[in-house]
Design a protein around this nucleic acid. Structure first.
Lengths: 204, 204
DNA sequence: AAAGTTAATAAACAGTGTTCATTGAATCCA
DNA sequence: TGGATTCAATGAACACTGTTTATTAACTTT
């Protein structure tokens, strides 16, 4: 019963081929420009073939999302290694924003799309990479709170405050709203605001 | 030369009819469900007719965006009237978040879409309602800074910090990320985080 | 060799935004 | 009034989109 080993390997290989093509098209044409038909054309198969390997387009986007977290961790790992929790949080914020600014389409897929995570039961499992990052941030916040002797502050709320600030900045930048506030200063605005957030949150 | 007054009035009337239908469809079917063909069907005209009154779909979305700012101001006006600048900023944040949570599609159109504002030269003019709101927030921040005697703080950065926090929260809520962090607590998370932001920013 | 299995596909369906030649009715002018 | 002109409205087409299904063709098993 079941597929022979060779069959399974071939199936996995074509799945990988599809994802690779999807990745390339995402990088070249953006989220809007990514279509089943373009993927099919890129790998020289018919569009219908894609549906033998993925139930629908959302499934492909979801797998891309997980690849995106892999990319993002390259930005975050050095920040995670920072000894001082306050500096670590700052470094995480800067790395997060850098990833967001340099990988708009990935970021959109990972943090702004609701489609690839329709059912909350599933997404709690499937967004585990995102959750792991948030939990690490929360733990760092707890350390910072203890270190600075801040009282009556919930580390989860603190982490959420920090995350939403950076997430908000990245999204405002992506939709060109920061450009409206001050032309050609987007990066500086993000850096300065991040510093101001750190200063006010940790009362430096 | 030029259109007679009656002609112009008729033209404006049909334009209004199109926008009204677009508004209804946006509210019922969301941003994705809003199509030229559905608008045409709703007003019982052919799709091609729409293009006699608007250059393209983006132009319609842009006009809807301006209508959205009208809706939003209903939420914000009471907050704007608040006497104490610190409480005013808090009230603005709460009203902004309330609008965002209760009007997802409008919010998306006004703050997350880049399409309706392709050229930055234009959008500086055409996003003037958004800019006016941000400038008012900045002015309130300046007042709060003076009132509390905070030193070395740029009111523009402070306003941006506050805006990006609330914007980030609303977007995280819209993409169900807050639901992942803590199930069925989205509203409370937003309120608490907003309070924490106020406390840390103004050192209460 | 015949039967069974299955990967791949062509074609279709129901949508999308947008363009353009044609129609038909209202307006203008002689 | 009659003919010319103008122009709003449209049907039909183009090039796309995601997805489904019956059919083909190749490979595997008996």
């Amino acid at each position: 019963m079941g597929l022979s080993e060779r069959k399974e390997r071939e199936k996995a290989e074509l799945k990988e081929l599809i994802l690779d093509a999807a990745k390339r098209i995402l990088l070249k044409n953006g989220k809007e420009g990514l279509s089943i038909r373009k993927i099919a054309h890129a790998i020289e198969y018919s569009p219908a073939t894609i549906y033998l390997y993925f139930p629908d387009k959302d499934a492909i986007l979801h797998e891309l999302m997980e690849i995106g977290f892999g990319l993002m961790s390259k930005y975050l790992v050095p920040a995670f290694a920072e000894q001082d929790p306050v500096q670590r949080i700052h470094a995480i914020g800067k790395a997060y924003a850098k990833f967001g600014m340099e990988n708009k389409d990935w970021y959109d897929l990972m943090f702004n799309s609701e489609k690839p995570m329709k059912h909350i039961e599933k997404c709690a499992e499937e967004w585990d990479q995102g959750m792991a990052m948030f939990n690490f941030l929360t733990a760092s916040c707890k350390q910072a709170i203890d270190l600075l002797g801040l009282k009556g502050i919930d580390e989860r709320i603190l982490a959420l405050h920090f995350w939403s600030t950076v997430h908000g900045l990245v999204n405002l930048a992506h939709s060109d709203r920061l450009e409206i506030i001050e032309r050609n200063q987007t990066r500086q605005l993000i850096d300065k605001t991040l510093e101001a957030a750190m200063a006010s949150i940790f009362r430096i």
